[in-house]
Amino acid sequence: MTAVDVRDLRKTFRRFRRREGLGGALKDLVHRRSETIEAVNGITFSIEPGERVGYIGPNGAGKSTSVKMLTGILTPTSGRMQVLGMEPFRDRREYVQHIGVVFGQRTQLWWDLAVIESFRLLGKMYRLEPGRLDERLGELREILELDEFLHTPVRKLSLGQRMRADLAASLLHRPRLLFLDEPTIGLDLMAKDAIRSFLKQVNERFGTTILLTTHDLRDIEALTERVLVIDHGQLLFDGALDLLRGQADQESVAVLDFLEPPEPEALRGVGDWVRWTRLSSTRFEARFSKSDRSLARFLGKVVADFAVADVSLPEPSIEEVIRKIYQERRPEREVMA
């Protein structure tokens, strides 16, 4: 059975536009002007059980609206949506027993209570027998290192600890599908790594399907095999991470360190197909299309003409890849990602 099956999903909001100033407020009382926003504009995809999928797009692309529909918080305007064989909004109470949701920016634990007490309350909400709860905690406490703060009130936890506690809380009822919204936001590198490897373990051990929204593309690189890119409410890309990366590989990038500052004239002399960017007095970045020249020929020419100290060839970052997809499809629009 498919874990997530979404067909032509749409969500339209009507927003009231407020006019400025006191006069505007009075006019609004008489007649409110509204506008229709197509937050999600017909997306179709499916996710198989056990997949780890990254869901990315700029702010306001329709990401969180679609996640809210998938988690049963919002009802779709139209389209078909089957998750774990259920309709999230219609079967909400039953459905939410089978999913876990983690918001990086918000805790779902009780602020004043010790972590363990929050877990116990959640255990009661999900109707777990006490023995079962202890068993689940036993599995989680070691990999998430919960022991150090199990008896600390949530408000006194560090951000990294809070995130670990929230992750544990979302897994107590052993959901089959885990939604993560910015799970590593604000964490230091070590903590980010710990969270990523933990999620991978959960996926591998329990077969938990993971859908991850993030702005940190290293989350995507570390965790997911498949990426959905959304913008303006539409799906721009659905496929393997490597494939997404491949799309940006039309261009070669090289960063060169010269022994002494090169003459701008001389740089231009390499060829008009190269775009140079000055990074420092002796460090320059060169970009050119693969169809124009091969990297080897470019390097051959540069090394022959200049005294080069070092060359590095940065792999295109996903930020860049996504920016390229946006630019190709919507050249008229400024990119926010």
């Binding site: 059975m1 109470r93 039953e94 027993q97 089978h98 999900y126 079962r132 052993r174 329990f206 077969g207």
Partner: peptide, 28 residues
């Protein structure tokens, strides 16, 4: 538990918080 975790939607180990009003009230 691998495959087991993704079988049918209704065999979750947790008992649902649905059912007759009395049960729900007691649980609440």
């Amino acid at each position: 538990m691998g495959d087991d975790a993704v079988s049918s939607p209704l065999d979750s180990p947790s008992r649902p918080f649905v059912g007759p009003l009395g049960t729900r009230l007691r649980a609440t």
